[in-house]
Computed example of a mutant assay.
Amino acid sequence: MPKGDGRERPLGIPTVHDRVVQEALRMVLEPIYEEDFSDDPFGFRLNRSTHDAITSVYQRLSPAQPS
């Protein structure tokens, strides 16, 4: 990758070892910090999608239906 001063920097492609370590850390840390997160955000969250976000907004903006 070219730098602004004309030199080049190596491309940082993770090796298999790096990916294994990253995934192991994610598996350990995700349950810990997921408990502390608010239920409102949907970006990059476990079992949440863009469609879930749209559904949530639609439900919040729709008038309450009488029973």
Score class of each variant (00 low, 15 high):
Met1Glu: 15
Pro2Gly: 09
Pro2Gln: 10
Lys3Ser: 10
Lys3Trp: 04
Gly4Pro: 02
Asp5Met: 08
Gly6Trp: 07
Gly6Leu: 09
Gly6Cys: 09
Glu8Ser: 11
Arg9Thr: 14
Pro10Gly: 04
Gly12His: 12
Gly12Ala: 15
Gly12Ser: 14
Gly12Val: 01
Ile13His: 06
Pro14Leu: 05
Thr15Arg: 12
Thr15Ile: 13
Val16Glu: 15
Asp18Leu: 01
Val20Trp: 02
Val20Asn: 02
Val20Leu: 10
Val20Lys: 06
Val20Arg: 06
Val20Ala: 10
Val21Arg: 12
Val21Asn: 07
Val21Glu: 12
Val21Ala: 12
Glu23Ser: 11
Glu23Cys: 08
Ala24Leu: 15
Leu25Gly: 05
Leu25Asp: 06
Leu25Glu: 12
Leu25Val: 08
Arg26Ala: 10
Arg26Tyr: 08
Met27Tyr: 04
Val28Met: 07
Val28Thr: 08
Val28Gly: 01
Val28Asn: 02
Val28Ala: 10
Leu29Pro: 01
Glu30Ser: 14
Glu30Asn: 12
Glu30Val: 12
Pro31Ile: 04
Pro31Gly: 04
Pro31Cys: 02
Pro31Arg: 03
Pro31Glu: 04
Pro31Lys: 04
Pro31Met: 04
Pro31Ala: 05
Tyr33His: 11
Tyr33Gln: 03
Tyr33Phe: 13
Tyr33Val: 07
Glu34Tyr: 08
Glu34Gly: 09
Glu34Arg: 13
Glu35Ile: 14
Glu35Ala: 11
Asp36Arg: 04
Ser38Pro: 00
Ser38Met: 02
Asp39Ile: 08
Asp39Val: 13
Asp40His: 00
Asp40Cys: 00
Asp40Lys: 02
Pro41Leu: 08
Pro41Asp: 13
Pro41Asn: 13
Pro41Ala: 11
Phe42Leu: 09
Gly43Ala: 13
Gly43Leu: 11
Phe44Val: 07
Phe44Thr: 09
Leu46Gln: 11
Leu46Thr: 08
Asn47His: 14
Asn47Arg: 15
Asn47Phe: 07
Arg48Glu: 04
Arg48Ser: 03
Ser49Trp: 07
Ser49Arg: 12
His51Trp: 03
His51Leu: 11
His51Gly: 05
Asp52Ile: 01
Asp52Met: 07
Ala53Glu: 04
Ala53Ile: 00
Ala53Ser: 06
Ile54Gly: 00
Ile54His: 01
Ile54Met: 05
Ile54Leu: 10
Ile54Glu: 01
Ile54Val: 14
Thr55Asp: 12
Thr55Met: 02
Thr55Val: 02
Ser56Leu: 00
Ser56Ile: 00
Ser56Glu: 03
Ser56Asp: 03
Tyr58Gly: 02
Gln59Ala: 14
Arg60Asp: 12
Leu61Asp: 06
Leu61Tyr: 06
Leu61Asn: 10
Leu61Trp: 06
Leu61Ser: 11
Ser62Thr: 01
Ser62Glu: 09
Ser62Asn: 07
Pro63Ala: 08
Ala64His: 10
Gln65Ser: 11
Gln65Trp: 07
Pro66Gln: 08
Ser67Pro: 12
Ser67Thr: 15
Ser67Phe: 07
